[in-house]
Amino acid sequence: MWVAGGQSTPGMKSMAEFGGQSTLNNEMRAQRSNVLDTLSFTVIYAGTGTRKGSLDVDGSHSLVSLVSMVAPSPDWFVGVHDLDLCNGATWTQSMTVDLFPYDAGTDSGLKFASANSATNPRSRSIV
């Protein structure tokens, strides 16, 4: 899905800049041999709230990656990459993960409300 320091795919660009999910979901579906399941949520407009869902994992697919747009922003997001839900032979029952902001490298805006200014060529995602 994404990796810190990697170049954003069209799906990551759409998610980071506009909150779009369809292109990123299609990219995940195209990787079906590596991706067991996907999960998407609707927007939380008030800035705070909760969403609940479930995700299938198994012994061959114990890593989870997730992303969420930071809005408003040019192309910032939070997420984790390859978070392992299995500690050796034991499934993790509960965990808390601090999420850090990343710049997707697709828009050159410097402030939350910057106008759209495409980064050309795209840069690598950075913290």
Rank of each mutant, 00 (worst) to 15 (best):
V67T: 08
K52D: 04
Y102N: 03
R124Y: 12
P121D: 03
T48A: 15
D103T: 05
H61M: 00
V70H: 00
M15P: 00
V80T: 14
S22N: 14
K52G: 08
F100E: 15
A118V: 06
G59P: 00
V80R: 09
D98L: 10
A46K: 12
D58M: 05
M95R: 15
G6N: 08
T50H: 09
T119D: 04
T23V: 15
P101G: 11
S60D: 12
Y102I: 05
E27W: 04
G20H: 01
G5A: 09
A30F: 12
Q93S: 13
A16M: 05
D107K: 02
I126H: 15
T96Q: 11
P72A: 09
S94V: 06
S40Y: 08
V64A: 08
W76E: 10
V80S: 07
M28D: 03
L63H: 06
V127D: 11
V70Y: 02
I126D: 14
P74K: 06
S123F: 01
S60C: 04
G59H: 05
G49C: 09
P74Q: 13
G79H: 00
C86W: 01
K111F: 13
D58A: 07
Y102E: 03
A71V: 04
I126L: 15
S8E: 00
D98I: 09
V97H: 07
V35A: 06
F41S: 03
A46G: 13
F18E: 12
M28V: 06
M15W: 01
R51A: 14
Q21A: 08
M15A: 10
L39N: 11
S22K: 07
Q31I: 04
F100D: 14
S8Q: 05
Y45L: 12
W91V: 07
A115V: 08
